[in-house]
C-alpha cells in the first residue's frame, strides 16, 4: 500500500508573543464573554431569554485567541454556540444581549435570536442552526473573498459534532480543490450535545479528517489564549498567502450543558472539576500575575467588565420589542433592475 500523501505541517506563527498589555486586553475580552454569558444564563432563568441558548463558557480562549490573530476584514461563519465568537469578533454585547431578549435593538432586530447572531459591520456572518451546514457557507464566503481579489480570510467554526456531517466533508473537498482562503476551526469540546467524543467518532482528532482531502492540519490545546493566537495566526496567514485551506482542531471544554435545558448528566464523576483546572480565564489570570499584573490592575478590569455586562443586560431589558408592522419586511431583499 502506498504511503498516505501527508500535506506539509503548518509553519510557525509570524506573530511575536504578547506582552503584558496585550495579554490583559485578551483577558478582559475573555472575562467579558464569560460575564455576558453568565448574565444571559440569569436572564434565561428569569424567562427573559427563551428558546435555545447554548453557552460558550469554558471555551473563551479559543474565540479570543482567534480574533487576536485575525484582521478586522476577515469573515467569520459559525454554528449556534456563537455568543463568545460574536463578542470576540467585535459584536456589541448590548446588541447581542438585546437579540437574546428578542428586542428590536438586537443584532438581527429580534428575528434571529441566540442561534443566529449576525453583524455585517464586523464581518460576523452568522450563527447557523443546522450542524455542519455552515462549513459549506464558509467555503462560499472564501470563494468570493478569493475571486473578488481581497486579502481577507474566512474562519469557519464548528464543533466536534459537526465533523461527522456530510456537509463538512463536502466543504473540505471543495475548499481544497479550489484552494480557497479558509481556515476550518473545529472546537472539540468533548460532547456533541450529550454524546461523548469517543462515542460519536472512531477518530477523535477531527483535524485528521483533512488528510483525506490533502489539507494542511493541526490539533492543539486551546486553553491558553496565547497558544491559540499563535497557531490560529499561523493557519490564517498560510491561507491568506494563497496556499489554500487549513483545518485545525482546538481541544477545549464546555463547562455548561449543551443548552440551558441540559443538566449534563452524561459527564463522568469529577470530570468537570478536573477540567475546570484548565479554565482559560483563570489560566490567563495566573499568567498575567507571573508577568507582574497586580490586584489593583486586575480588579479595575473586572469592574469594567462587570459594568459592561450589566449594561448589556439593562440595555436589552429596557429595549422595545419588535414592531409587528415589520414582520414581512425581511422575507425578501429589495431588488432593483
Amino acid at each position: 500500500m502506498p504511503d498516505l500523501p501527508v500535506p506539509p505541517p503548518l509553519p510557525e506563527s509570524p506573530l511575536p508573543p504578547l506582552d503584558k498589555a496585550g495579554l490583559l486586553t485578551l483577558w478582559e475580552k475573555m472575562l467579558l464573554i464569560r460575564r455576558v454569558e453568565e448574565m444571559a444564563a440569569k436572564a434565561y432563568t428569569e424567562r427573559k431569554i427563551l428558546g435555545f441558548c447554548h453557552l460558550y463558557i469554558g471555551q473563551e480562549s479559543v474565540a479570543v485567541g482567534a480574533a487576536a490573530a485575525c484582521r478586522p476584514e476577515d469573515r467569520w461563519v459559525t454554528g449556534y454556540r456563537e455568543h463568545g465568537q460574536a463578542i470576540a469578533k467585535g459584536v456589541s454585547p448590548r446588541a447581542m444581549m438585546a437579540e437574546l431578549f428578542g428586542k428590536a435593538t438586537g443584532t438581527t432586530k429580534g428575528l434571529g435570536g441566540s442561534m443566529h447572531i449576525f453583524d455585517k459591520s464586523v464581518h460576523f456572518m452568522g450563527g447557523y442552526g443546522i450542524v455542519g451546514a455552515q462549513c459549506a457557507l464558509g467555503t462560499g464566503v472564501a470563494w468570493s473573498l478569493k475571486h473578488l481579489k481581497t486579502d481577507a480570510v474566512c474562519l469557519c467554526w464548528f464543533g466536534d459534532g459537526a465533523a461527522n456531517q456530510g456537509a463538512f466533508f463536502e466543504a473540505m473537498c471543495l475548499a481544497q480543490l479550489y484552494k480557497l482562503p479558509i481556515v476550518f476551526v473545529c472546537e472539540n469540546n468533548f460532547y456533541a450535545m450529550g454524546t461523548a467524543i469517543d462515542r460519536q467518532s472512531a477518530l477523535t482528532d477531527m483535524s485528521l479528517r483533512g488528510l483525506g482531502v490533502g489539507m494542511v492540519r493541526e490539533q492543539f490545546e486551546g486553553f491558553d489564549v496565547e497558544q491559540v493566537r499563535q497557531r490560529m495566526s499561523a493557519a490564517i496567514e498560510y491561507a491568506r498567502a494563497g496556499n489554500g485551506p487549513v483545518i485545525l482542531e482546538v481541544v477545549t471544554y464546555r463547562h455548561r450543558g449543551h443548552s440551558m435545558s441540559d443538566p449534563a448528566k452524561y459527564r463522568k464523576p469529577g470530570e468537570l472539576e478536573e477540567k475546570k483546572k484548565s479554565d482559560p480565564v483563570h489560566l490567563t489570570e495566573a499568567r498575567l500575575r507571573d508577568l507582574g499584573a497586580g490586584d489593583a490592575e486586575l480588579e479595575a478590569i473586572r469592574d469594567r467588565v462587570e459594568i459592561a455586562a450589566k449594561d448589556a443586560y439593562e440595555f436589552a431589558d429596557a429595549s422595545p420589542i419588535p414592531d409587528p408592522a415589520d414582520l414581512y419586511n425581511y422575507t425578501y431583499a429589495p431588488s432593483g433592475s
Partner: peptide, 28 residues
C-alpha cells in the same frame, strides 16, 4: 475556469458554497 466552474459530485457542498458566495458579494 474561474467563472464557469466544474464541481465534484457534491450537490449539498456546492449549493452551500453558492449561498456563501452570494452572501459575500457575488452572484452565483
Amino acid at each position: 475556469p474561474d467563472r464557469v466552474v466544474d464541481t465534484p459530485i457534491a450537490e449539498n457542498g456546492f449549493a452551500g458554497l453558492g449561498v456563501g458566495a452570494a452572501m459575500a458579494g457575488m452572484r452565483p
